[in-house]
Amino acid sequence: MKLITAIIKPFKLDDVKAALKAMTVEGMTVTSVEGFGRQGGHTEMYRGAEYQIDFIPKIKIEAVVADHDVTRVVEAIVEAARTDKIGDGKVWITPVEGIVRIRTGERDDDAI
């Protein structure tokens, strides 16, 4: 079992969701986040003063998948989220030691 975490551009969420649904990923958790990477921020202007905004809005997607699904899920996210411009985000993979589905008590791969 692996946890796949992706940081993407907010307007790409629908495309990524559609791609994962199409490959029957059972669920995902989505969070609005702010951060910075190589893209840097942007400037905003309030009463004539220009401000550098370092943290820009992104979407974080988390999904736990079975080991044999990891490659194709990651590829689908990368494909769907890519605009070829700076700031497209990152995907990383983390090992998961165990899962429990609260309603049924099912464990690990059965709980995905």
Binding site: F11, M45, A49, Q52, I53
Partner: peptide, 26 residues
């Protein structure tokens, strides 16, 4: 259009995270 018109047309954000600070550019 994708990024949104508030930041791109008006260089403002409607709902700022209250903990966020901004560095003055000039």
């Amino acid at each position: 259009e994708s990024e949104g018109l508030d930041v791109t047309e008006h260089v403002e954000t409607a709902y700022n995270n209250s903990e966020r600070t901004m560095g003055r550019s000039h």
